[in-house]
Amino acid sequence: MNFSTDQIMKWIQHYESFGPLPGFLLPLLEAFLPFLPLFAFVLANVNAFGLWLGFLISWGGAVTGSFIVFLLVRRFGQQRILTFLKRNKQVSQMMDWIDRHGFATLFPLLCFPFTPSAIINVVAGLSHISAAQYLFAIMAGKTVMIFTISYVGHDVFSLIHQPGKTAVIIVVMALLWAAGKQLEKRLQK
């Protein structure tokens, strides 16, 4: 594959020509298929539509997708398909933790780019947290996470041409990942 600056610019222009709908739908779809690269979708959006519009498109899709997953699990989570999750000791403990602490637990988890938000959506759907409280937590947490990714990636070309900026970003992302892992370990205790 050719990853020259010209080729990347062509991909971004081609992506931009489809309008904001794919930019909204891809982060929404990532909530259902967590193996999809949300990071890449956000980068594509901010490079195609600019920092603010790209951020808003990505944020809207990610929040909508997460909330739909939450609502589907809430609606169908009591049925046989998901009852095995409720029997799992760790899932049960996390549900209890969310029930007791609500927003205070969810917000920091949703802020970190490397937190498995699909798991959080499912566990929150199985818990007793109110839909309004969860929506608020998703909106706030995804704002921090997606804006961080957007800000970091809004100028991909500077990352290519300025290795110092790239190194700083890699260090910040590694620190966010490490902080997320530490928070995850604390919550498991």
Rank of each mutant, 00 (worst) to 15 (best):
G102C: 09
G102I: 10
G102E: 10
F103T: 08
F103R: 10
F103Y: 15
F103S: 10
A104Q: 09
T105L: 15
T105H: 05
L106F: 10
L106G: 04
F107N: 02
P108A: 11
P108I: 06
P108L: 04
L109S: 07
L110T: 02
C111S: 12
C111Q: 02
P113Q: 08
F114C: 06
F114H: 09
T115H: 10
I119H: 00
I119M: 13
I120Y: 01
N121V: 05
V122H: 00
V122E: 00
V122W: 00
V123E: 01
A124T: 09
G125L: 09
L126K: 05
L126R: 07
S127H: 05
H128N: 13
H128D: 10
I129P: 06
I129W: 10
I129V: 15
S130G: 11
S130P: 00
S130C: 03
A131R: 13
A131F: 02
A132K: 14
A132Y: 06
Q133C: 12
Q133F: 03
Y134M: 09
L135S: 06
L135F: 15
L135M: 12
L135P: 00
F136T: 12
F136Q: 08
F136A: 15
F136D: 00
I138C: 15
M139R: 02
G141H: 09
K142R: 14
K142H: 05
K142S: 08
T143S: 15
V144S: 03
M145Y: 00
I146R: 06
F147V: 01
T148L: 14
T148P: 01
T148W: 07
I149V: 14
S150A: 15
V152H: 03
V152D: 00
V152P: 00
G153N: 01
G153E: 02
H154T: 08
H154Y: 14
D155C: 03
D155M: 09
V156N: 05
V156Y: 15
S158I: 12
L159K: 08
L159Q: 03
H161Q: 14
Q162K: 13
Q162A: 12
P163Y: 03
K165Y: 08
K165I: 12
T166W: 08
T166H: 07
T166Y: 11
T166I: 02
A167I: 12
V168T: 10
I170L: 15
